[in-house]
């Protein structure tokens, strides 16, 4: 079973992603901010990371940079309400950039791809 980490500061959205992605059959771990995400990547093995960007303590983009430094091959999917971050080169380390939507199908597709890529590499 693929294991994914959802990084999201909004409590209710964390709940939503956990519920929905679990239903997809993933083992879902969550983090409420960038720092917690970094700590969890260090401690655990994931097949993909879903990363919100605008978060307290450590910003998503900084967390991405940190995570890439820990595990270069770990696919990261940016999931944000803001389109603007695509211009920031730090976001280019991510595999995919998904605009937040109540329709999670795009996010599901990107997670699927990432997990496949990760498992193929392993």
């Amino acid at each position: 079973m693929a294991r994914i980490l959802v990084v999201e500061d909004d409590d209710n959205q964390r709940l939503l992603y956990k519920m929905e992605l679990s239903r997809e059959g993933y083992e879902v771990d969550v983090a409420a901010d960038g720092q917690e995400a970094i700590d969890k990547v260090k401690a655990n093995q994931y097949d993909a990371v879903v990363m919100d960007l605008k978060m307290p303590k450590v910003h998503g983009l900084d967390a991405i940079t940190e995570i890439a430094a820990i595990d270069k091959e770990l696919p990261i999917i940016i999931n944000t309400a803001y389109g603007g971050w695509q211009d920031d080169f730090k976001s280019w380390a991510a595999q995919a950039y998904v605009l937040k939507s109540s329709d999670l199908s795009e996010l599901r597709v990107q997670i699927q791809k990432a997990v496949e890529k990760r498992q193929k590499a392993n």
């Binding site: 909004d10 209710n12 939503l16 929905e20 239903r23 309400a81 937040k100 109540s102």
Partner: peptide, 21 residues
């Protein structure tokens, strides 16, 4: 626009979730 996206995503996400399962 951005600010209302978060609650909308949450509300819409759960609504779809109810519809889907």
């Amino acid at each position: 626009a951005h600010e209302i996206r978060n609650p909308l995503v949450t509300i819409g996400g759960f609504a779809r979730s109810i519809l889907e399962a």
